[in-house]
Computed example of a mutant assay.
Amino acid sequence: MKSIELFAGAGGLGMGVSCAGFAPQAVVEWDRWCCDTIRENRRDGLGLVGDWPEPTEGDVRDVDFREHEGKIDLVTGGPPCQPFSLGGKHRAHADSRDMWPQAVRALRETKPRAFIFENVKGLTRETFATYFSHIVLQMTYPDLVAGPDESWETHLRKLEKHHTGRRGPAGLEYRVVSRVLNAANYGIPQRRERVVFVGFRSDLDIKWAFPLETHSMDAMLWDQTRGNYWDRHKARKADRRIGDRHVERAERLDGKPTTAPWRTTRDAIGDLPDPEHQSRDAMKYHNHRFQPGARSYPGHTGSPLDEPAKTLKAGVHGVPGGENMLLRPDGSVRYFTVRESARLQTFPDNFRFHGAWSETMRQLGNAVPVELAHIVARSVKRHLDFGGADFLK
């Protein structure tokens, strides 16, 4: 099946989609460092981008998608999230960086069978509730375009009237669902919440729901208090304890959960050599170099080794903070290396990142975990393969 990847970044979402069986026909990204990362891995034939087309570097507003009309099964992407980020300026629809209209234009011009878009959890804040509705209705009816002088509020009213008053065929239409997904609940070693939108063209009559969660915090606590977590990792006796805030919850567990345990930071990076010593073994891993300067203070405390990592941040306002630090059991901290951060985002070890540490951390902080993208895209593909069959999970 064929796809188009918009706002590709370092390729996390696109790689997961490729792993699910989609072949990208176009990859669009404006940032040159991200494009260099994709190019380097593409040139070396590495991993899931080895057969990607040359990325289109530039403003998506300058890209004409009409040559792909009727030829694309899936459009994916993460429209720039700065307008809605909890750490941003919250300008939302007044922000020129809002690329949602361009994502909708790609749907209008290609008419894919389905799409997957994602964005920061901040988009679901009550402050943005009305604009959130506008985004969903735009994706539902991509052909109903705002006029050149039409405000988004006026356009929203037009979409609402069309939605409530339509009769019979409505042109290009998608059935859209959205949900905030916590990556940790799907086996990613990071507590990362993103809102994901999935839509299927209405003429396909496909019934779909988000994949069931497979991992849980309770299962992690069970594994750490009554399972073999510590033995499996050959942890020192002094380190074999859970966080104080979790003790009561662990004691209340009256049976082994049916889900798998949350994957912890130790699960993800425990086999990597300590980069602080710059051993010969550490040098064998791409982008696994010690970054000095980490320090802890209130609100900047790092990710505990034996829990999923905190959400990696892009550091758009400077050097990434505590969310990009490892908190060791002895209370000391250090910055995650690029390779460790890539592990937390489930990028393969042979994937190389282009740029300085701060730049590559920005790429990773903006990325979608590869495995989470794979899980969602795999479910979408199965439904496209089998049509409206309701037996699919």
Rank of each mutant, 00 (worst) to 15 (best):
F7R: 00
A8N: 02
L13P: 03
G14W: 03
G16E: 02
F22E: 10
A26E: 05
V28T: 00
W30A: 01
W33I: 05
D44I: 05
G45I: 08
G45D: 09
L46W: 07
L48I: 07
L48W: 15
G58M: 02
D62W: 03
F65C: 09
G70D: 09
L74V: 05
P79F: 12
P80Q: 04
P83N: 05
H90F: 14
R91F: 13
H93P: 01
S96W: 11
S96H: 14
S96N: 12
D98Y: 05
A103F: 15
A106R: 02
R108L: 14
T110Y: 13
K111C: 14
K121L: 12
E126L: 11
A129K: 14
T130P: 02
Y131E: 08
T140R: 15
P142E: 03
D143T: 14
L144P: 01
L144D: 04
E153I: 14
E153Y: 08
H155V: 10
H163C: 08
T164R: 14
E173P: 07
V176Q: 04
S178P: 00
L181W: 02
A183D: 00
Y186Q: 03
Q190G: 00
V196L: 14
V196R: 07
W208I: 01
A219N: 11
L221G: 04
R236N: 12
D239C: 08
G243P: 02
D244E: 15
D244G: 08
E248W: 06
A250K: 05
L253I: 15
A268G: 05
D271E: 12
D271K: 12
D274R: 12
R280C: 01
D281T: 08
K284H: 11
Y285T: 14
H288F: 06
P292F: 08
P298A: 13
H300R: 15
D306R: 02
P308V: 00
K310H: 12
T311Y: 00
A314E: 04
H317L: 13
R328K: 15
P329G: 08
G331L: 09
S332K: 14
F347Y: 15
D349S: 11
N350G: 08
A356I: 06
R362A: 10
P369G: 04
E371D: 13
V376C: 04
V380P: 01
V380I: 10
F386V: 06
